[in-house]
Amino acid sequence: MSYPAFRYTAPRTTREVVETLRIAKEKGIRANVLAGGTDLMPQLREGTTTPEVVVDISRIPVLKRIERMGNEIRIGAMVTHAELVTSELVREYAGVLSEAAKMVGSPQIRNLGTLGGNVVNASPAADTIPALVILEAKLVLKGPEGERILSVTDFFTAPYQTVIEADELLTDIVVPLPPPSGRAVFLKLARRKAVAIARMNLACMLYYDRQKETFEWVRLCVGSSTPRPVRMTEAEKALIGKPFSTEVLQEAGRAAAEQMVQLSGLRSSTAYKKPVVGDLVMRAVRMAVEKG
């Protein structure tokens, strides 16, 4: 099995990657960045992506680091899902991202696939994206003119579409440390447990004050259900300042379902997804509160 011929290069620095991408763009040559390959390789096989140049970014050590810098965790774009699952730093400060990474594909896919690849591929069903949204992560894009940093919610424009330019490289995913009071949950629904694309996934983080008996803050993002990842702000509002009760949870579920339909329109899957998104929101909020 081989693909239409292409040229291959594996730069040693992010600067060289950007320079290669810039030259390719200038010359009108189709270049693709190769991270873990779990999305690009099937696309090459199916012929849906036909690069003339493949730029492998797996030989750049700085893209593989996970480090704490002040009040942030900086995760290199080439950090694999398996590394997100085992990293002490990520588990301690961004546990929901670990939980999401654990749900990706299979052990083999998690050993290859990377966080940067999952973000740039921009599948609406990507598991790590809802987690990054509720962590209020920022993305560092490096281009010929320098770096720009944008919020993860500003990165996506439509399914599989992002604002990244042909001569830009995602180098880091920056996660601000969430308030220690937060309790987080990640849920995924799929046809089976492994190697399955999410039908729906959800990341939730909240702080429920047991003395005051109110939700102090809530962050909710449901994946695979909106054209681009967004916070379920209506459901968040339905919870904040309210006590933990069945009625309040039901109201939040309804609000999430309505916001989903508003953003996605009525689709063939709506009959299934509308009640399910409500139930998932209720389940996740309950689980987060029960975490104490």
Binding site: M1, G37, T38, M41, V54, D56, Q108, N111
Partner: peptide
């Protein structure tokens, strides 16, 4: 196994 870790060899571009 690539460097001790299980991978799908069909998704590893040879030069990797």
């Amino acid at each position: 196994l690539m460097n001790g870790k299980a991978v799908n060899a069909c998704m590893v571009l040879a030069p990797k």
